[in-house]
Design a protein around this nucleic acid. Structure first.
Ligand SMILES: [Zn+2]
Ligand SMILES: [Zn+2]
Ligand SMILES: [Zn+2]
Ligand SMILES: [Zn+2]
Lengths: 136, 136
DNA sequence: CGCAATCTTGTAATGAGATAACGTCACATC
DNA sequence: GATGTGACGTTATCTCATTACAAGATTGCG
């Protein structure tokens, strides 16, 4: 049905290990943090992590956060639109939430269209303090 | 009147040199590219560049592009809103254009407000091919 | 002026993020 | 069995950014 879906059963060993590390984590992880966590499983070099991450991002299972140089497991409530996702990143607790908003996506497409800009990829990252961390 | 304005007259020597390099450039420059360009002016270490860049970004004269790890001189048509700027980055020619769109900014503020997220900084970077580069 | 506070600079070393280049192995296909 | 493909392992190297420490310059008093 959907050729983009890539169930975890199809993941290679290294990809599964990296995916597992990201899924277990509360927040985003850097490639080198993942590497350290997986040394006990035989990982020795950054490239092993980066290669797995490349695939996982390609499969849509992991997102890269440009403003953090880090990666996070997809926690989409519903994975329709992987084109225009906004991330809210709490600078206190590291919580990352994904927003897929049509109005936002349409506005961006409109703005790009006005100047005939062929949009390929959008990066939207909101930095701030999440609700929980404010009360503290 | 506006304490955020920081005219170029007030810039230090290093800040002026870095600002000059960015202004002369067509597109964004990495810190190390700037360093290389300024070696003839006495620059020896990355930190000299990064310190100047920090200030220039603080003054609102330079923007950092997170998805490129690079910096670009502000080319705002009108510098009202430095809070919510969107960048369109051509992956072919490197052209960067800034968009300050109220509808976009308001939508993001609304989305943040819905979850009581205290928004501090937004990063919006659109990657694609600009009008000129498509015809080619 | 004398002195402290602050800001800017210079320099070296190091940390953090990412890729290039090479060879090997497992597996599917013909 | 030859061949193509994709994942894997290893080393080295590259790019990006910061820490730590010392030296000058500048400002603002008392
Ligand atoms: Zn997602
Ligand atoms: Zn939080
Ligand atoms: Zn600007
Ligand atoms: Zn272009």
């Amino acid at each position: 049905m959907n050729e983009h879906v890539h169930p975890s059963a199809d993941l290679t060993k290294n990809q599964s290990l990296v995916m597992g590390a990201l899924t277990k984590s509360d927040g985003p992880l850097s490639a080198y943090t993942i590497l350290d966590q997986l040394r006990e499983h035989g990982f020795r070099a950054p490239l092993q992590v980066y290669r797995a991450l490349d695939k996982l991002v390609e499969f849509g299972m992991v997102h890269r956060l440009e403003s953090l140089n880090a990666f996070v497991a997809c926690r989409h409530p519903d994975c329709d639109d992987h084109e225009t996702i906004a991330f809210m990143i709490c600078e206190t607790c590291g919580l990352v939430s994904e927003i897929s908003d049509n109005a936002l996506a349409n506005r961006l497409k409109l703005l790009a269209g006005e100047t005939r800009f062929a949009l390929k990829k959008t990066t939207i990252e909101l930095r701030g303090i999440c609700r929980n961390c404010q009360t503290a």
